[in-house]
Amino acid sequence: MTDSTLITEADCALLERLARQDSSAMSEAYDRFSGVVYSIACRVLRPGAEAEDVVQEVFIKLWNRAAAYNRSLGTPLTWIITMSRNQAIDKLRSLQRRSAVLLEHPEDLPESAEKEETQTHAVLDDEKAALIRQALHVLPRDQKHAIELAFFSGLTQMEIAEHLKEPLGTVKARIRRGMLRLRQPLAELREA
């Protein structure tokens, strides 16, 4: 059994406790996932009151809907990431603002938020994640940017193409190539 399998099983058990309305499980879930949820909210909305609102809304949703989780939705982490992204984008649209990821320089994010080291290790610590991290560090900038826009901006494919001033086909191909390049080490690992 790999580390990630262990993590997934532990996360599933945590969700089961949340479904039984176990308050101590909520404290553990917060310690485990709040960094992920807040990071996504900040990437979409910038750090601030709205991002904090999103964190609160996501955890209350998690408390009320943990029983609705099933494994066909992916791992608990996948489910929580999707929920956080959707909640943040809904908030973004209600505010009629542009996503923070559309800033020219991502480092423009305010420094008021405390940075946490290697969050990935805390929730995804295994060989596969390490391989993907390595691939991510050497991913061409344009492909990484296209992937981040796809996930964090809340824009449609066409809007991303307009933002990048590139044809739609180029944008789709860029996203595909970037994602497949990240996945390449996993395929090689499987073949080995």
Binding site: I40, R43, Q56, I132
Partner: peptide, 29 residues
Amino acid sequence: LRLCREVVVLESTTLRPPDHLKSSILQAI
């Protein structure tokens, strides 16, 4: 690809939420 997405998300920003947030969420619950 979902695993790749998770790594991208986790690696892109690593921010810690303000300390007061946990207590206010637990209080709400």
